[in-house]
Design a protein around this nucleic acid. Structure first.
Lengths: 206, 206
DNA sequence: GATATTATATGAGCACGCTCATTTAAGGAA
DNA sequence: TTCCTTAAATGAGCGTGCTCATATAATATC
């Protein structure tokens, strides 16, 4: 059974669309891989020729959304904005694109967005992180700063991860609380960047 | 079949000890609930008379560790310490107690430590959060500040959650990287508290 | 003691994500 | 056309976390 590349791409797209629809209406836990396969018109096992796990399908949906968010940010940004405003806009644009995925985004948060660097540098989450961080770097440069150092990136990602995690469980009507947190976080981060450097270290207790 | 309260408590303890041992040697995924049950000397189904889910067992182990960490912190703290140092010590004492659980701690991180408030206020994670936050409040008061407001607590928990998440995946030999992040985080947080305008010092130094 | 009551223990069984030996069919060689 | 090769599709089957109808035994009542 040899199938054209075209057919395979079409099947892959059908899986992604089907999954998105089912997850939106039923959530992550109640949508089974058998559901997805049957609605995509393939056998249960065939699904796993296209994606290694159920989570990987969700991760692809997330990666697509965030990919288009990077472009959307470049269009939306204003030249007069402050550093905090640009960082705020960057993240909030991502959240806007992720909005339809919010109800099941939690299923990939911990595996895909961990604040420590992933063990597997070839997967989607690392690409996504690199793209996001790259934009952050260019924002900083645009505001007359050096490219961020390792620990600065780690601190940024820690905050970003925390915000995503907050957003997922945010019970306020339109997630206003998350945006308040985002505002404060970016203010806090920029201030930390500025006052950083004249720091003394604690001894680690081990 | 009526069994004394004593027997039930003993069974419960056996489940917890057995689980801890198996998780340490095999990890979360490869330890099955059937393994736990059989090593604890009960039937597979009986396990779920004692804990609603596999994760709940882990959560109990975590809660016990963090509970003893609260007491350990009170003993370890020094009177001359700065606010940052006390906050650093509080969290690092928790990490020290959690150390043996690190390899499987990730399995309860997202459900038990979400930065947004839990929907279920009666479960272990809410107790744990309340205890931790209570200590944070008393630390702040001890350093001449008011009890933290809602958003201040949320920002704190966001950082704490992020640090735990970093720690779980920290690849550095003794998780030094986490302690460097912790140091920076507390510095950043305290600085934010000060410049935020929402916290007033009782005794400003001038 | 004998019997009834009932809290607890039990394990067969369910639905799940995922695997893998087998089947199917498209493209090449004759 | 006929056979061969092989990439992709298939679905029975595995081990999992967890449920639930049933079995069991400790206590209450007589």
């Amino acid at each position: 059974m040899r199938v054209t590349e075209e057919t395979k791409l079409a099947t892959r797209s059908r899986i992604l669309e089907t999954t998105l629809g089912l997850l939106k209406s039923q959530g992550f836990e109640t949508t089974t891989t058998r559901d997805i396969a049957s609605e995509a018109g393939i056998a249960a096992g065939t699904l796993f020729n296209y994606f290694p796990t159920k989570e990987a399908i969700v991760m692809q949906l997330v990666a697509d959304a965030l990919d288009s968010a990077e472009a959307a940010f470049e269009k939306r940004r204003q030249d007069g904005a402050s550093l905090e405003e640009d960082l705020f806009l960057h993240i909030s644009t991502g959240l806007r694109q992720l909005r339809p995925l919010r109800s099941f985004f939690g299923s990939v948060l911990e595996t895909g967005f961990s604040p420590a660097r992933s063990a597997n540098p070839n997967d989607l989450s690392e690409e996504l992180r690199t793209a996001h961080i790259g934009t952050v770097g260019s924002i900083l440069v645009r505001h007359g700063r050096e490219s961020p150092t390792g620990i600065e990136l780690q601190m940024y990602w820690l905050l970003y991860h925390g915000l995503l995690s907050f957003w997922v469980a945010d019970g306020s009507p339109k997630q206003e609380d998350t945006f308040a947190m985002l505002d404060q976080s970016m203010r806090m981060f920029v201030n930390w960047l500025d006052t950083n450097g004249k720091t003394q270290r604690h001894n680690t207790p081990f």
